[in-house]
Amino acid sequence: MSQHTITLTVNGQEQTHQVDARLLLVHFIRENLNLTGTHIGCDSTSCGACTVHINGRAVKSCTVFAVQANGKSVETIESLAAGGDLHPLQEGFWEKHGLQCGYCTPGMIMSAKHLLEKNPNPTEEEIRWAISGNLCRCTGYNKIVEAIQYAAEKLRETEAVA
C-alpha cells in the first residue's frame, strides 16, 4: 500500500502525517488523531454521523481519503468549545433537547454550523433540508430544528452587538 505524507490543519493545528493511500479521513481523524467525536454510522454515505468541515464546507469524512485533505483545513466537533465556552449550537442542542443517544449529534452540529455560516437566518424548511443528509434515529428532528433556530438567533444577536 503506497504511503503518503500529508500536511494539514486540524482544529487550528498544522500537522504532518504518514498515511496509507486508502485511509479514509474518518479513520484518520478517529484512529490516528484520537478525535473520537466524529462517528461512523453507515457504509453508503447516508447517515452524516461522520460530518466534519474541510475548508469551511460540511463534508462526510467517511467518503473522503485522508490524502485528499492534504494542504487543507479540517474542523471537527472538538474544535467548537475549544476555548471553554460552548458554541451557540452546542448550547442550543442542550437547551432544546436536540439529542438523545448523542451519536448523530456531532455530525448534526457540523452540518448546522455550515448552514448558519452560509445563511444566518434560515427558515424551518431550509434547516430541515440542510440536515437531510444527517440521520437521527432518536429525536424525531423537531428539537434539532429548534436547537438550530436557537443558535441562529443567538449568533445573529452576537453579530448585531459586534
Binding site: 478517529r30 473520537t36 452546542q90 442542542f93 442542550w94 448523542g102
Partner: peptide, 21 residues
Amino acid sequence: MKRKEDPRFIQGKGRYVDDVK
C-alpha cells in the same frame, strides 16, 4: 430539567464502544 448527560455528547466526548482503544 436540561439533561445532565448532554455536555459530553455535544462536545464529542461521549464514549461509545468504537471509541475504546
